[in-house]
């Protein structure tokens, strides 16, 4: 599923960055990489999302968020 399809507050793992290579690279430099754990903290207008990654909050516009694939993190106990 993509970020906009993810429920608010759920713990997620980034599984795909389908952005243009340079943009995906910049996201990686900013700390959003394959395998990164994230939470969606806020739904914004026009599909925008705010995600929490390692203590930081990132605002992503709707188009960008739709190109980020994530999967829910299952934790035992």
């Amino acid at each position: 599923m993509t970020l906009p399809e993810s429920p608010l507050g759920a713990e997620l793992r980034v599984t795909g960055l389908r952005l243009p290579a340079a943009d995906a690279f910049r996201l990686s430099e900013m700390g959003i990489r394959l395998g990164t754990l994230a939470h969606v903290t806020q739904h914004a207008a026009f599909g925008g999302r705010v995600i929490a990654v390692a203590g930081s909050r990132f605002a992503l516009d709707g188009e960008t968020a739709a190109l980020i694939d994530v999967e829910p993190v299952e934790r035992m106990g």
């Binding site: 507050g9 713990e11 754990l37 939470h39 903290t41 806020q42 739904h43 914004a44 207008a45 026009f46 925008g48 705010v50 929490a52 390692a54 909050r57 605002a59 934790r75």
Partner: peptide, 20 residues
């Protein structure tokens, strides 16, 4: 970072200021 999200003060403010 294990576990559920712990909302910060900024998260709570953003519920209003960034709400669609």
């Amino acid at each position: 970072l294990p576990g559920p999200l712990r909302r910060t003060f900024s998260d709570r403010v953003d519920v209003v200021l960034l709400n669609p």
